[in-house]
């Protein structure tokens, strides 16, 4: 039979033990994090000037008079090439959506901590790598609305560049064009029997030699889309030939993909 005193002592010691166990650890010393940050800003120019939307004032290389209404696109797998190594931006977000109708989307404050280094170029994928281009992965607008129909390949648009052009022979009646890039189809006999799909994303490499990022410094990397270049080099793109809708025209989208090689330019700004 247990003596009540023994039981009493056991209980008191248990109580005391729990109190001791409950003592908090002091917060550890903060270790210094020496890293820099980057911020991407996106701007859209036409013929060297900021793009003016919704006004019929531009003429492309093929001679089409046109206007641009909005531009929406995805870039992904951004890389910084430095002397110490390549930094892939994917600690938080690996895909960024730009929308000329959404001013906030034209700035991306990157979460990743950047090692202080000397960097000489930036590259990104325009669109998505095929294994990242997954149907229904976006459930919320605005990204959700960039879906590419399942029967045309699925996944998402890499870009929607929407505008209107004045067809040959017209003086005032414009027709909308959907300058869209996404997964193309191979047809056995258009428009029936799709036999395969083609991914049209491409790599954009932007040399910007000798920009350094220091610890506790934020560097702004400005990416400019020069819209006129979508329509000229190496292929002169004529709206009168390709019409308003190219989602089912792999030949046209192939041209867009190849013209994309010199659409983007870069500028580094420091605070």
């Amino acid at each position: 039979m247990l003596s009540y005193r023994a039981v009493y002592l056991t209980k008191i010691s248990l109580f005391v033990l729990l109190i001791i166990a409950g003592c908090k650890d002091d917060p550890p010393e903060e270790t210094e994090q020496k890293s820099g940050r980057i911020e991407f800003t996106f701007q859209h120019f036409l013929n060297g000037q900021p793009l003016q939307f919704d006004t019929l004032r531009y003429v492309n290389e093929a001679g089409n008079k046109y206007m641009v209404n909005e531009i929406q696109y995805f870039i992904s797998d951004v890389k910084l090439f430095g002397k110490k190594g390549i930094k892939l931006i994917d600690d938080w977000k690996d895909i960024h959506y730009v929308d000329t109708d959404i001013p906030d989307s034209r700035r991306w404050e990157v979460y990743d901590k950047i090692t202080p280094d000397e960097y000489d170029s930036v590259s990104f994928t325009f669109g998505f790598a095929p294994d990242k281009n997954i149907s229904f992965m976006y459930v919320n607008p605005p990204e959700k609305d960039m879906f590419w129909p399942e029967f045309l390949g699925g996944g998402y648009h890499y870009m929607k560049l929407n505008g209107k052009w004045l067809p040959a022979g017209q003086t005032s009646q414009t027709i909308p064009f959907d300058f869209h890039l996404g997964r193309g189809q191979v047809y056995y006999s258009y428009p029936d029997s799709i036999t395969g799909f083609i991914d049209n994303q491409f790599n954009v490499s932007l040399p910007a030699s000798g920009f350094t990022i220091l610890a506790d410094e934020t560097v702004e990397i400005q990416i400019t889309m020069n819209v006129e270049n979508w329509f000229k080099d190496p292929h002169i793109y004529d709206h009168d030939i390709y019409g308003g809708y190219i989602m089912q025209n792999q030949e046209a989208m192939e041209m867009v993909k190849q013209n994309g090689h010199n659409v983007f330019t870069i500028q580094i700004n420091k605070e």
Partner: peptide, 13 residues
């Protein structure tokens, strides 16, 4: 979790 690791499946989250 970062969106690069997992994107949500439910609307408005």
């Amino acid at each position: 979790l970062p969106p690069a690791v997992q994107k949500p499946l439910s609307k408005d989250v």
